[in-house]
Measured scan of single mutants.
Amino acid sequence: MEVRTIKVFTTVDNINLHTQVVDMSMTYGQQFGPTYLDGADVTKIKPHNSHEGKTFYVLPNDDTLRVEAFEYYHTTDPSFLGRYMSALNHTKKWKYPQVNGLTSIKWADNNCYLATALLTLQQIELKFNPPALQDAYYRARAGEAANFCALILAYCNKTVGELGDVRETMSYLFQHANLDSCKRVLNVVCKTCGQQQTTLKGVEAVMYMGTLSYEQFKKGVQIPCTCGKQATKYLVQQESPFVMMSAPPAQYELKHGTFTCASEYTGNYQCGHYKHITSKETLYCIDGALLTKSSEYKGPITDVFYKENSYTTTIK
């Protein structure tokens, strides 16, 4: 009895394709271990004539594949690729409408935090270190965002349907971005203890939790000093293409032309909904596939993004 075979390709990165001759009487799992086709788990399936010449994702289970996976995804987590594939199996079914010149995501599976993050990423200057993220990001900007969303979920250790947080998501993504040249110098002034300067680099240099107003941050924000008295913390120097200011959701007025974009969060910790506000020729609110415009805006804002380049204080 002759062994019926077909020729397929296996890959971990969709760049390096490895030619395989597979036995049609055995499952993919018996031949390769966990195997995925377009995100779908085909591990328990036997090869079919229609699979001839198709590319299958496999887990990096030998040295060659491990090197290829690390170079593309910059992670050695053995569960990463499987999590990416199972997320992709959902995100490829989502709709990605162009809204006001940006790629958004039609609401499904509690994905409003991903839509808000995706919209924000198209408006701030950011370059990702893992080629996987950078490639998928370019495709997302062009309207094909399924891979990018699935990668975000995998890097953030999230599953489809789980509630997510924009600030946490951005923080994970910033860790995989090139923020080497970003720098922030802060000064804390206390009447009792004097003053202390701190220099922050990388992710810490672009994120701040405690106030939404970048102007206020430049002037000074009140913080408790270690001595128990009130101290003032203010920005001395900022070198970065953008800054992200966050605070627990509270009524906040966004003035046209003073910011790049913002995240609105309605609801409580267990259950809520994100919308995205962007400042173009007027203010726009993007909620999944829905767009509304207004000249002014007041609502429960939790993150505001500002364009920056270089700032030095005039406070002496």
Rank of each mutant, 00 (worst) to 15 (best):
Ala262Tyr: 02
Pro249Glu: 02
Gln238Trp: 01
Met85Ile: 04
Val221Thr: 07
His51Glu: 08
Asn157Thr: 01
His74Phe: 00
Thr302Cys: 06
Ser295Asn: 08
Pro130Leu: 03
Glu281Ile: 00
Asn157Arg: 10
Ser213Ile: 00
Asn147Gly: 11
Asp77Gly: 06
Ile223Met: 10
Cys156Pro: 05
Leu179Glu: 01
Leu118Ala: 07
Ala140Pro: 01
Val206Thr: 02
Gly194Asp: 01
Val42Ser: 07
Arg66Thr: 12
Asp165Met: 11
Pro249Asn: 04
Ile45Asn: 13
Val42Trp: 14
Gly220Ala: 05
Thr27Asp: 13
Ser279Thr: 08
His276Lys: 00
Val243Asn: 00
Val3His: 11
Gly101Gln: 11
Tyr73Thr: 02
Pro131Val: 03
Ser240Asn: 01
Cys285Tyr: 01
Gln31Thr: 13
Thr27Asn: 12
Phe70Ala: 06
Ala150Pro: 04
Asp38Thr: 09
Gln195Asp: 07
Val67Asp: 14
Leu200Ala: 07
Gly29Ile: 02
Thr292Gln: 09
Pro60Cys: 02
Lys219Phe: 02
Phe9Asp: 09
Met207Glu: 01
Thr226Met: 09
Gly29Ser: 07
Ser104Asn: 06
Gln134Val: 10
Cys156Trp: 00
Gly299Thr: 04
Leu173Pro: 02
Glu144Trp: 05
Leu17Arg: 10
Leu212Tyr: 03
Asp165Ser: 15
Thr312Gln: 14
Gln222Ala: 12
Gln251Ala: 09
Ile124Arg: 06
Ala69Gly: 05
Lys7Arg: 13
Leu118Val: 06
Asn147Ile: 10
Thr192Ser: 14
Lys44Gln: 11
Met170Asp: 03
Gln222Glu: 12
Tyr138Met: 15
Asn100Tyr: 09
His74Val: 01
Glu2Gln: 12
Cys193Ala: 00
Tyr137Lys: 04
Asn100Ala: 13
Met207Asp: 00
Ser246Thr: 02
Met209Tyr: 15
Thr159Glu: 15
Leu283Phe: 08
Met207Tyr: 08
Glu296Asn: 10
Met209Trp: 15
Tyr113Asn: 05
Met170Asn: 00
Asn49Gln: 13
Glu264Leu: 09
Met26Gln: 14
Lys95Pro: 06
Asp13Phe: 07
Lys218Val: 06
Asn100Leu: 12
Tyr234Lys: 08
Lys54Glu: 11
Thr10Tyr: 12
Tyr28Asn: 09
Pro131Tyr: 06
Ile286Phe: 07
Glu52Val: 12
Tyr155Thr: 02
Val21Thr: 12
Glu144Phe: 05
Val160Tyr: 02
Val203Pro: 14
Gln197Asp: 09
Ile105Asn: 04
Pro131Arg: 07
Ala69Ser: 07
Thr313Gly: 06
Arg66Gln: 13
Lys275Gln: 10
Gly210Ala: 00
Ala231Asn: 03
Ala250Arg: 11
Glu204Asn: 11
Ser79Thr: 12
Ala231Asp: 00
Ala142Pro: 04
Ser86Tyr: 05
Thr91Gly: 04
Ala132Asp: 01
Leu114Val: 15
Ile15Cys: 10
Thr266Phe: 08
Asn268Ile: 07
Gln98Tyr: 10
Asn157Ser: 07
Cys193Pro: 01
Thr192Trp: 09
Arg4Asp: 13
Thr260Asn: 00
Tyr252Phe: 09
Glu281Gln: 06
Thr199Lys: 06
Asp77Pro: 02
Thr120Asn: 11
Cys271Arg: 11
Lys93Phe: 12
Leu126Glu: 02
Ala140Met: 12
Asp287Lys: 05
Ala205Asp: 01
Ile223Tyr: 12
Tyr284Asp: 11
Phe80His: 02
Asp180Lys: 10
Thr226Val: 13
Lys316Met: 15
Tyr172Trp: 11
Phe174Ala: 06
Lys316Gln: 15
Lys280Tyr: 09
Leu126Arg: 01
Gln20Leu: 08
Asp63Asn: 09
Tyr36Glu: 07
Ala142Leu: 12
Leu291Pro: 10
Pro60Gln: 11
Lys44Thr: 12
Trp94Gly: 05
Glu204Val: 12
Phe305Gln: 00
Gly299Pro: 10
Met24Asn: 12
Phe259Gln: 00
Tyr96Leu: 07
Gly101His: 07
Asn61Cys: 10
Ile286Asp: 00
Glu52Met: 10
